[in-house]
Write a protein that binds this DNA or RNA. Structure first.
Lengths: 227, 227
DNA sequence: GGACATATGACAGTCGGGTGACAAAGTTGC
DNA sequence: GCAACTTTGTCACCCGACTGTCATATGTCC
C-alpha cells in the first residue's frame, strides 16, 4: 500500500475483467478482480483496496446493492462501470453512493485519469475527517458531528464545544472551573452552568443518562470523558 | 471565434501592450488587452479567453494576485511575462499558478510557440469529465454543471463556486468566514451573505429545501455538504 | 438524619438562521 | 445603445432553537 494504489474490480464478464485487470496493472495499480458482488465485498473486508470499480449488471447481488454494502463499511471511493447510454442506471448507481462512473467500452486512459482524479479528491477528505472514538461514541471535529452507534446525534454548539474540550483530555478530570473557562471563556461564573450542559449532553450521547458510561461525574471535583 | 484562439493580455506598459496585441493578431489570435489586473479579471469573467498573458509588475493588484484570482475561477492557461530576468519572480509566478513564463523583451515567435505548446498540452485531464457525486446530486466541475437525479439544474456562477467549494471538502464543516474568503475572496464581510446564497442553492439542489439532505447547516458553526 | 453535591425540569430572553423584498450591477438580445 | 431579464448583495422580519438562571428533586457521604 506504500505509494502504490490498489484497485478492486468487480465484473462478471471474463473478457472485460481480464483485459481491465491487465490494463490497470500496466498503469501501475495493484489489481484484484472478482466476478461477483459477494466475493468483492468479502475481499474488500479482508484486504481493502483504495478504489473499487463495480459493474452494475452482476449475477446474484447486483451492483447497486453492492455499492450500498461497500458504503456501509467504509468510505472507499467507488466507480461504477455501466453499459453505454444507460443513464438511468448510472444515476441510480450514483444515488446508491458511487463517486463517479465510466461507460463501456472502457477507455483505459480515461479510466486511469478518473482513478487519479478520484484519489486526488478522496484522499484529503478522508484524511481530514478525523474521528475521536470513545467506544460507541464518535466525535468528528472537522465535520462538527457526533455519532452514537454510528448514527448522527444532534448536538448544540455549546454541547459540542464542551464535548470536544472533554475529548481533548481523554479520561482526564476537568474541573467546572476549567470547563467554564475553556468552553465559555468565563474567568468567573456560576459553576452550575456546567452541570446543566453536562446533563443535556448526557441525554444525547449516553444510552442510559442516569448511569453514564462516558461522561462521568467525579464528585466534588468535576467531570471526565472516558471510553 | 470558433477554432480561433483568444488571448487576454494584461500589461500596463502602453507600448508593449500595443505591439504585443498587434503581433498576436498577426499570428491569428483574437486578442484583448487591458492595463490592469482588475480589468483583466473582469474581462476574463465576462468573456473568457483561451489563454491569459500577464505581466507581473502591475499597478494596483499585482500579477501574482491576479494569477491566483484567475485560478480561483477557472483553469485557463496562464503565461507570465516578466520584465526582469528575475528567477525569483518567475518562480513565484509559477507557484501562484502560472503554466509558463516568458521574459521581456518578448520574441513574438517564441511567444507564439509557447502559446501553441500550452494549448497542445492544455488539459487532457480536464477533458475527461469527472463527476463528484453526493447521492442524487452530481457536480461536474469541468463542465460547470450540476445535476439532480440526473437532470441538469441551472445554478448561477456564485452558487456553483459555493457548491464546488463545499464539495471539495465532503462532509467537512466550513465556517461562513471560510466560505466568504474562498468563494468571494472577502477577508471580511457580512456573513449573512453566505446564508442567502446557501438558501438559494438549496432551492435548486434539494428535493425539500426545508429539510436539506446534502447542504446542511451546522448551527452556530457553518455549513457542510454531505452524501 | 443532616449537610452537601449533583441532576433535572421549567422558563424567558436572546440568538442564529431562513426568507422575501428590493435596488444595484451585470448580462443578453435586439 | 437600449430595454428586458438575471444575478448579486443588503436588509428587515420572523420563528424556532439555544442558553443561562432558578427552583426543586434526587443522590451521597458522614
Amino acid at each position: 500500500m506504500r505509494g502504490m494504489s490498489s484497485v478492486l474490480l468487480i465484473e462478471d464478464d471474463d473478457r472485460i475483467r481480464l483485459s481491465l485487470t491487465m490494463a490497470l496493472e500496466d498503469e501501475g495499480y495493484t489489481t484484484r478482480a472478482v466476478a461477483t458482488a459477494e466475493e468483492g465485498l468479502a475481499l474488500q473486508r479482508s484486504k481493502p483496496a483504495d478504489t473499487v470499480l463495480v459493474d452494475l449488471m452482476l449475477p446474484g447481488m447486483d451492483g447497486f446493492e453492492c455499492i450500498r454494502e461497500l458504503r456501509r463499511d467504509d468510505d472507499v471511493p467507488v466507480i461504477v462501470v455501466s453499459a453505454r447510454d444507460d443513464t438511468h442506471d448510472i444515476v441510480a448507481g450514483l444515488e446508491a453512493g458511487a463517486d463517479d462512473y465510466i461507460v463501456k467500452p472502457v477507455a483505459v486512459k480515461e479510466l486511469a485519469a478518473r482513478l487519479r482524479a478520484l484519489r486526488r479528491r478522496a484522499r484529503p477528505a478522508a484524511a481530514a475527517l478525523t474521528v475521536v472514538a470513545f467506544g460507541d461514541l464518535e466525535i468528528l471535529p472537522d465535520a462538527g458531528e457526533v455519532r452514537l452507534h454510528g448514527d448522527p446525534v444532534a448536538v448544540t454548539r455549546t454541547e459540542f464545544r464542551l464535548l470536544c474540550e472533554l475529548a481533548e483530555h481523554p479520561g482526564q478530570l476537568l474541573s467546572r472551573q476549567q470547563l467554564l473557562q475553556r468552553v465559555w471563556g468565563y474567568e468567573i461564573g456560576d459553576e452550575r452552568l456546567v452541570d446543566v450542559h453536562v446533563g443535556r449532553l448526557r441525554h444525547k450521547i449516553e444510552d442510559s443518562p442516569g448511569t453514564p458510561r462516558h461522561l462521568v461525574t467525579v464528585r466534588g471535583l468535576g467531570y471526565k470523558l472516558q471510553r
